[in-house]
């Protein structure tokens, strides 16, 4: 089965959308028809500043808090752990 597209945010009950995309084969004809579950979109709670490493890690980490932040005084104070 070929999987296409980004399907993670599309949810029908707890059925992966791939199952909804299956091509019919001869054996499918013998299977009972699945009940239709309306797909729904699920919003993923991203925290951009964490996801893109936009914030500095704490001073205790191997990060800019220890070199660019201190050695060359890069303005970097937000904890990103």
């Amino acid at each position: 089965m070929k999987i296409t597209g980004q399907y993670y945010l599309l949810q029908a009950g707890d059925t992966d959308i791939r199952e909804l995309k299956m091509e019919k084969s001869s054996t499918d004809k013998d299977q009972p028809k699945k009940s239709y579950v309306k797909p729904r979109l699920r919003q993923v709670d991203l925290r951009p500043e964490e996801a893109v490493l936009g914030a500095c890690k704490t001073g205790s980490t191997a990060g800019p808090a220890s070199s660019p932040c201190n050695a060359i005084a890069v303005g970097c104070s937000t904890a990103g752990s």
């Binding site: 993670y8 949810q11 707890d14 059925t15 992966d16 699920r42 993923v44 709670d45 925290r47 996801a51």
Partner: peptide, 14 residues
């Protein structure tokens, strides 16, 4: 479920 879990993993990835 796997869809819920995958969405949560994505939100905690980089």
């Amino acid at each position: 479920g796997k869809v819920e879990a995958a969405a949560r993993l994505f939100s905690c990835s980089f």
